[in-house]
Design a protein around this nucleic acid. Structure first.
Length: 549
RNA sequence: GCCCCCGUAGCUUAACGGAUAAAGCGCUAGCCUUCUAAGCUGGACAUAGAGGUUCGAUUCCUCUCGGGGGCACCA
């Protein structure tokens, strides 16, 4: 059930009916929600866009479309307004019927098949396993989780992945940091150099390991011991990250993809052979380079260093290949911080260069600034100055944290004010939305023992203004789901939730549901459908819908 | 130097090129002997600046000014 999409298709058919040649180059029919009732419930301005094609005035075009559209059951009136708007007014009886549909579909209300089963892989967070997930990862974690839900609802086959950078020098440094801390804790006098990670979590890891078989006889041996234990330490770190994300923050993954595995499985070599076969590699100053300049990049990039170590970029090319060629992904959506934007362009260039089918979408999320007492707190994982996402969720509450991160457009830099976060958590809009749900549950609980007044039908049907507004808002949920699945604007979901709550609260103050020993049957139905939709919205964001507050 | 993002109310943010720029916080005037006042109703306050494209620009283009972030044989 997606009214807007259906209307869109009907208008498109009408247009092709009038101008058959537009079948080849269909115009995009745009439908929006006008600001006030007097402009209708839905509106299209398509006529203006057709003026040059049709060589007629927008008003004449709008009239032609209106005639060709004929009778649409849901619409009781179509109005044409200069310069060429087609304004649609919904029929009350049709609106009332939608409640029954929502009640029948329940948690399926909002589903569609616009994805057509296409395989989409979402990669989010993928923070280096050299420390805990920090506040800076919050955007990606919650947005990725939410978009995955939305795309599932929209009929995509969704794979959620965390790419673990589990090789490279950073793993050595992690292991050395923990090792040194461990020995220092054992009372052995040794330095703790600057290149080691400074956070308190290193000490936590050190306390959790026990290395009776590794005695330090000689400081030169540190690398030998490090290499023997580094995979153990890495595993501990990764399992900590998994636990926090999955159990604490309720951010789900289908697969934790190992960078190392790309090498051990031979996929990197396979990709190198492919690149070589296409003549895209060359050797310069001992290193192996990928020719990217002739594909529009400002420079070529090293895949294998002169010392024969592979670069991070190489495994990334292999990972991209793995997704599109080996696993036949149709769409790859990567959430990264804006500090990786150079790399975002590069990965898309590789996609074009190797002519993979499907699309690579990189969602750049602008930085989150942490504010404390009006000052920005600079965070750095290496220096140990950061706030973990877990701490933040503990302090502010998970629902409020999720809502806050989701509320912002990825393109905007957002400030997270720690002083306000604690104080204002009660004022967080998430509570406003949850409160609407709690009120609904309370009404339903109270009505359990009461009798219903008959539901008026047919000619007796008359919806109050607040009731109509509410139903109109509820039927937009499937439209929103479909739109977000296509434009990834996850922040529109919390805003939509706030709108639903606002309209419900209005309805609540204007329309009494329970009167004395009876309740109004139709209004109870509306309350119930609102509950269903609110639950669907909140669950898409991974936020609770409490029965009591 | 080159590249990316952002400048909207006192603050934090909305608005797929559409109609009267929308919310929350803060400020302010009201509403609880009826379903949860974490609510509702009203008021004051904003598109950084200058051009351009368009029937129509917060949105697209150019420039200026301001803020953030990138430009490795690091990951």
């Amino acid at each position: 059930m997606n009214f807007k999409l259906n209307l869109q298709k009907k208008i498109e058919r009408a247009i092709v009916g009038i101008w058959p040649r537009l079948r080849e180059n269909p115009v995009v029919v745009d439908i929006n929600h006008p600001p006030e009732d007097k402009f209708g419930d839905y509106s299209s301005n398509i006529a203006m866009q057709l003026t040059s094609i049709a060589q007629q005035s927008p008003l004449a075009i709008a009239e032609a479309i209106k005639d060709k559209l004929g009778k649409v059951p849901a619409i009781n009136r179509i109005e044409i307004v200069p310069p060429g708007f087609l304004n649609f007014y919904l029929d009350d009886k049709w609106l009332a019927r939608q409640m029954g549909i929502i009640q029948k579909e329940k948690n399926k209300f909002g589903q569609s098949n616009i994805g057509g089963g296409r395989r989409v892989l979402l990669e989010y967070v993928s923070a280096n396993p050299t420390g805990p997930v920090t506040m800076a990862n919050g955007r990606g974690a919650f947005a990725g989780d939410t978009l995955a839900n939305i795309m599932k609802l929209s009929g995509y086959t969704v794979l959620r992945e965390y790419y673990m950078n589990d090789i490279g020098n950073q793993v050595n440094i992690l292991a050395e940091s923990v090792l040194r801390r461990y020995w220092i804790n054992q009372g052995i006098k040794m330095e703790y150099p600057d290149y080691c990670y400074q956070g308190e979590y290193i000490n936590d890891l050190a306390k959790r390991i026990n290395l009776p078989n590794y005695k330090l006889n000689n400081i030169e041996k540190i690398e030998v011991v490090r290499d023997k234990i580094k995979s153990r330490i890495l595993q501990k770190m990764i399992s900590d990250i998994k636990k926090v994300l999955e159990k604490k923050l309720i951010v789900h993954y289908d697969r934790w993809y190992s960078e190392k595995m790309l090498y051990t499985s031979g996929q990197v070599d396979q990709v190198l052979r492919l690149l070589k076969g296409r003549g895209l590699l060359y050797k310069f100053e001992g290193a192996i380079w990928l020719k990217m300049k002739k594909f529009g990049d400002s420079q070529d990039h090293v895949l294998i260093k002169a010392n024969e170590d592979p670069t991070y970029f190489l495994s990334e090319v292999a990972y991209l290949w793995n997704k599109f060629v080996k696993r036949k992904i149709n769409k790859y959506i990567l959430f990264v911080g804006a500090d990786h934007h150079g790399h975002a362009a590069r990965i898309q260039r590789v996609h074009r260069m190797l002519e993979f089918s499907g699309t690579t979408v990189v969602i750049l999320m602008q930085m989150v600034r942490l504010m404390r007492r009006g000052q920005e707190v600079k965070m750095s994982k290496r220096s140990g100055i950061f706030i973990t996402l877990e701490e933040l969720a503990d302090e502010v509450g998970l629902d409020a944290t999720r809502f806050f991160f989701l509320m912002h457009d990825f393109n905007t830099h957002m400030d997270f004010d720690m002083d306000l976060a604690r104080k204002k958590s009660k004022d967080n809009p998430v509570f406003y939305v949850q409160y609407a749900h709690a009120r609904i549950c309370s009404i339903m609980e109270k009505a359990k023992t009461l009798a219903a007044t008959p539901v008026p039908r047919g000619a007796n049907l008359e919806l109050a203004k607040a009731e109509k507004r509410l139903i109109k808002q509820l039927i937009r949920w499937p439209e929103l789901v479909a739109e977000v699945a296509q434009n990834y604007q996850v922040h529109r979901i919390p805003f939509f939730a706030i709108e639903v709550a606002t309209i419900f609260h209005e309805f609540y103050t204007q329309c009494q549901v329970i009167q004395g020993k009876q309740y109004n049957g139709r209004r109870m139905q509306l309350v119930n459908t609102t509950r269903i939709v609110l639950q669907n919205i909140l669950s898409s964001m991974g936020i609770n819908a409490p029965a009591k507050m």
